[in-house]
Design a protein around this nucleic acid. Structure first.
Lengths: 302, 302
DNA sequence: ATCTATGATGCAAAAAATGCAGCAGATCTC
DNA sequence: GAGATCTGCTGCATTTTTTGCATCATAGAT
């Protein structure tokens, strides 16, 4: 939509933080960009950027404006996809901000399933921690956020809550490999590999050992779930993860997953949310619907 | 905001129903306007107007787009007034669609009061019946609607309900002029002047006489409340009106207002509403607040 | 003190929007 | 049924706007 170039430019400058920098990524001259911004400020009667020696930054008027602009831009996308719907083709783009656990199995399959129905729809998947996922929603950089045990923020509207019991993951030759359920104490008497502090699984475990005689003494600590999973295969270790981050039972290969006794470690909750008050593009709304039923059928939903 | 000219043009064409007609009111050539529309349709990949022999009309894609456009335009007004607020001055415009009863006394005074605080704020007051007032909200032609006993529509969010007991209005020399309250039967034994069928007051009276032996036999019928008020002074008649359409007691001049017994005629309700889901411009929101407290103090609020 | 970023500006070239005159088509009027 | 009168649309010349180049002034980084 050509008539929105100016506001797109403003958005770019606000994100990048300098006119020349934004001009480069927008493939135009800094002159042209600078002049457009001056023109907008002229019409508005107020500057929207404060000029710093190293670039520009939105002032408070600019903050108000950029919210309007981003809303406007993403609403246009929605309207365009609604219009495309009228003519039969479902087009569109779905931007997702989510935590690491969704990346290896769950999302790729869900996206593949959706795209087999609607090949015209494109996807963007961005790894974000809980706080950043919510920021992405507010900035309209993401349509959907899927995070584990989030700090709840005022701007997010929860679409779905899916309980995720913490599971122990072991190699098939591990001494605990054939158990149906495990107490936390049993696990901690073996060498363990844990995700770092700010992950939800780790947080749940920390809370669980608090006030008990148990200690979390990880032999290996990593911020990569994938790395942790491979550790339990390479060495006879044990790690913890939530079901959605693991392949289905029939596809686990040489690994085994065993739920922890809920008396020891309460189930965490996986949240899917969108920006409060926003009307999602058709594609994003439908995809969210698909995820909801997928999660509802795999795990019980509250 | 210059960058929105194209969408403003589309809005005008949609409202007026022809390109040449819209071009005339916009003070540009039909050529320029026509080309802008063709350009937008080109970018969108879909026509938004269907060409009729007598002009143009939005097609379904256009309907989707025009909603977006009007939202966008009125949101911009809100953002601009928020920005103006930052620099101290309160500016803005409040557009009101309301029924006749509000016009003579209530709104002029409230607007005067508001403007004495914020002289930069301008007002538009448009007489609309209940249905049209709601259409005006949906079209973003009005920020606030104030109507009596409305048919409730899905797109309207009620900001305030103010009960309005129906009052009889008589000249000071009328035989009933000194009564504190009147039964409907007493009134109908005198010559009466009534508003026409589709007004709320008339509707309440019609409902009241149904199933009784009473009959509404107006000597005079008019769609002008002002005319009716003057009738009771010129001739010894009696008419009915709601308090908000009447001057305060100390300013009634040669007229008297006497509430009807609520056993005969239930109080009607005056509604103030806005478009559901819309964030009002600062000025409109503040003015709505002022009206709320004014109505709450004059009449009890439910 | 020098260097290297930044945003702003004068001027000429390029691009886009506008206006005029005129076309084709459909309805309305008589 | 023929003409009048609307409608939206298009080719071409003109005007307005936008862009790019070269350059300046400023302020932090080196």
């Amino acid at each position: 939509m050509r008539y929105l170039t100016s506001v797109r430019y403003i958005d770019a400058v606000a994100r990048i933080g300098s006119i020349r920098g934004a001009a480069a990524t927008l493939a135009i001259t800094s002159t042209a960009l600078n002049r457009r911004i001056l023109a907008i400020e002229e019409e508005l009667g107020v500057p929207i950027f404060e000029r710093l020696p190293r670039g520009v930054r939105l002032n408070s008027a600019g903050e108000l404006l950029i919210h309007y602009i981003r809303h406007q831009l993403s609403d246009l996308e929605r309207v365009k996809s609604q219009i495309a719907d009228l003519s039969g083709v479902r087009r569109g783009h779905v931007a997702i901000a989510c935590s690491q656990a969704l990346l290896p199995y769950f999302l790729p399959r869900q996206i593949a399933a959706y795209r087999s129905e609607h090949p015209q729809v494109t996807f963007g998947v961005h790894l974000r921690d809980r706080a950043d996922a919510e920021v992405a929603l507010v900035d309209h950089a993401a349509d959907l956020a899927i995070v584990f045990e989030p700090v709840r923020l005022a701007d997010v509207h929860t679409l779905l809550r899916a309980p995720q019991p913490v599971c122990a993951v072991v190699g098939e030759r591990h001494r605990l490999a054939d158990r149906a359920m495990l107490r936390l104490g049993e696990c901690l008497s073996h060498p363990i590999a844990l995700p770092t502090q700010h992950y939800g699984v780790r947080h749940l475990l920390e809370v669980a050992v608090q006030g008990t005689a148990l200690r979390l003494e990880p032999a290996i600590e990593s911020d990569s779930f994938e790395f942790l999973r491979h550790c339990v295969l390479a060495e006879s270790m044990l790690t913890f993860q939530i079901p959605i981050g693991l392949p289905e039972d029939d596809d686990l290969g040489r690994a085994r997953r065993i739920p922890l006794d809920p008396r020891d470690v309460p189930a965490g909750v996986l949240y899917m949310g969108q920006l409060k008050g926003r009307v999602l593009p058709v594609a994003a709304a439908r995809f969210a619907g698909q995820l909801s039923s997928a999660l509802a059928s795999r795990y019980e939903v509250s």
